[in-house]
């Protein structure tokens, strides 16, 4: 079956405008944190949830630590040649 070419060319254009999408992402993220100032859980499951931006920081820090530890420390220990095992 043929994939739609129009959609494909739109995605090509989108790829070329990656910079604009990046800016849009930053604006959206800032907007979400701004909303978090006003919207907080009524019954927080964790005490720090009451602090605006907690989950944003949680996700960012978790991602950075996870990628760094796994790729820089764990991966060199575990990696084998694809055909070795």
């Amino acid at each position: 079956m043929q994939e739609p070419k129009l959609l494909g060319s739109w995605l090509d254009t989108a790829r070329e405008r990656a910079g604009a999408f990046k800016k849009l992402l930053f604006v959206v993220l800032a907007g979400l944190v701004a909303l978090n100032v006003f919207i907080l859980p009524h019954e927080p499951h964790f005490a720090p949830e009451k602090i605006p931006g907690f989950w944003a920081l949680f996700a960012l820090i978790c991602t950075v630590i996870m990628v760094f530890v796994l790729k820089k420390i764990v991966y060199p220990i575990l990696a084998q040649h694809e055909e070795d095992k």
Partner: peptide
């Protein structure tokens, strides 16, 4: 709150990917 919390986690994980 659920919608915002979920959006924050997803959005800032994406930012973490960009950083790393």
């Amino acid at each position: 709150w659920h919608v915002l919390q979920s959006s924050l986690i997803i959005g800032f994980t994406g930012l973490g990917f960009y950083v790393m």
